[in-house]
Simulated assay, not measured.
Amino acid sequence: MKPFTDNADHPNIEGKFAAIVVCWILGNGCLFAWNSMLTIEDYYVHLFPKYHPSRVLTLVYQPCALTTIVILASREAKINTRNRNLVGYALFFLSSLAVLVLDLATSGKGGLIAFVGICIVSGLFGVADAHVQGGMIGDLSFMHPQFIQSFLAGLAASGALTSALRLITKALLFFAISSFFELICVVLYAFVFPKLPVVKYYRAKAATEGSKTVCADLAAGGLQTLPDQEAVERAKYETRFSNKELLKQNADYAVDIFLIYALTLSIFPGFLSEDTGSHSLGTWYVLVLFLLRKIRSMSRG
């Protein structure tokens, strides 16, 4: 495969490298909070030994994420992409902060009320993930291919990064770092990313081609671009597949994704967290196992 080169569709505009770096950070932020919760589950197992948090939290997270993504997908053409992503990252930040506050408020003593609170946060992480992951991939699809590649690389790296941090930090500091990182993502997406010249170019280009979901992004970047009327008229007569038709055409991929998630989540993190037996690493065994699993996952990505 030939290396990607700039051409008429992807000109070399100022801010490209900065955009790639920001996309990587935003990709990290998309799963940083949830991976933090997964990685800290050795702590939760200690706090809530009767409630099996390593199994329950995943069962709470996934239905919330799936339900939200189905709702968003059914209305994707009318949703403001910028607001969707900002809501997601803001929810990640507030939920991560809630984990820290909850732990401080209960003095790390556990209990049913604290566990219910953690479950609620897990569900909010699922809602936030559904907002951000789909929204960002859709947003970056208008732009340079290296942007979405960087975003996906950040997604893959977040697990290894959180696992490595867990090895060298205690629970409270770990929660604080997670919250701060999500706050950085909110600031980057809200104030830095939309003002990069290369991002302005691609969003203006999308608007002139009839895209209705980038108006707020253009305004955030200080641009007001009217859509090309010819492109808008042409779009009216182009065939647009419904979500049902798209799902039917990609049924094999949907089944593959379902099976991959079902198999993965049946083993990780629940089985790895609780059914580890006795090992020379002691309590470090789960952390090291998580880190190796995330590194392997990142290398495959």
Results as ranks from 00 to 15, higher is better:
residue 206 A to W: 11
residue 246 L to S: 02
residue 200 K to V: 02
residue 217 D to K: 01
residue 200 K to T: 02
residue 207 A to N: 06
residue 225 T to E: 14
residue 220 A to S: 13
residue 241 F to K: 14
residue 191 F to S: 04
residue 240 R to I: 15
residue 248 K to F: 02
residue 240 R to V: 15
residue 207 A to C: 08
residue 192 V to D: 04
residue 229 Q to H: 04
residue 240 R to E: 13
residue 220 A to V: 06
residue 213 T to P: 01
residue 185 C to K: 10
residue 201 Y to K: 05
residue 237 Y to W: 12
residue 219 A to W: 08
residue 235 A to H: 04
residue 212 K to E: 11
residue 216 A to R: 07
residue 228 D to L: 07
residue 201 Y to D: 01
residue 185 C to T: 09
residue 187 V to Y: 14
residue 206 A to D: 08
residue 206 A to M: 08
residue 206 A to K: 07
residue 210 G to M: 04
residue 234 R to V: 08
residue 200 K to F: 03
residue 230 E to A: 13
residue 194 P to N: 05
residue 248 K to C: 00
residue 218 L to C: 01
residue 196 L to V: 09
residue 216 A to F: 00
residue 194 P to S: 04
residue 193 F to N: 02
residue 225 T to V: 15
residue 191 F to D: 00
residue 204 A to M: 11
residue 237 Y to T: 14
residue 197 P to D: 03
residue 184 I to E: 09
residue 235 A to D: 13
residue 205 K to L: 10
residue 206 A to S: 13
residue 212 K to Y: 00
residue 195 K to T: 15
residue 201 Y to G: 04
residue 220 A to I: 06
residue 200 K to N: 11
residue 184 I to N: 07
residue 197 P to Q: 03
residue 236 K to R: 15
residue 196 L to A: 11
residue 203 R to K: 13
residue 226 L to V: 10
residue 210 G to T: 01
residue 186 V to I: 15
residue 201 Y to W: 12
residue 189 Y to R: 12
residue 230 E to G: 15
residue 243 N to M: 09
residue 236 K to L: 13
residue 219 A to T: 13
residue 233 E to V: 05
residue 193 F to H: 05
residue 186 V to S: 13
residue 206 A to T: 11
residue 194 P to D: 04
residue 188 L to P: 10
residue 230 E to M: 05
residue 235 A to Q: 11
residue 210 G to K: 06
residue 218 L to Y: 05
residue 221 G to F: 12
residue 195 K to S: 08
residue 195 K to C: 10
residue 234 R to E: 15
residue 227 P to C: 03
residue 203 R to F: 15
residue 223 L to S: 04
residue 210 G to V: 03
residue 233 E to G: 00
residue 192 V to A: 10
residue 244 K to A: 14
residue 214 V to F: 06
residue 214 V to R: 01
residue 231 A to G: 04
residue 207 A to S: 12
residue 204 A to P: 00
residue 208 T to I: 07
residue 221 G to R: 08
residue 242 S to M: 01
residue 210 G to F: 07
residue 242 S to K: 00
residue 237 Y to M: 06
residue 191 F to E: 00
residue 243 N to Q: 08
residue 185 C to Q: 09
residue 184 I to C: 15
residue 236 K to G: 06
residue 233 E to M: 10
residue 248 K to A: 13
residue 239 T to E: 11
residue 207 A to P: 03
residue 248 K to L: 03
residue 186 V to R: 12
residue 243 N to D: 05
residue 184 I to A: 15
residue 206 A to R: 07
residue 198 V to W: 07
residue 223 L to V: 01
residue 185 C to S: 10
residue 191 F to P: 00
residue 195 K to Q: 12
residue 200 K to P: 02
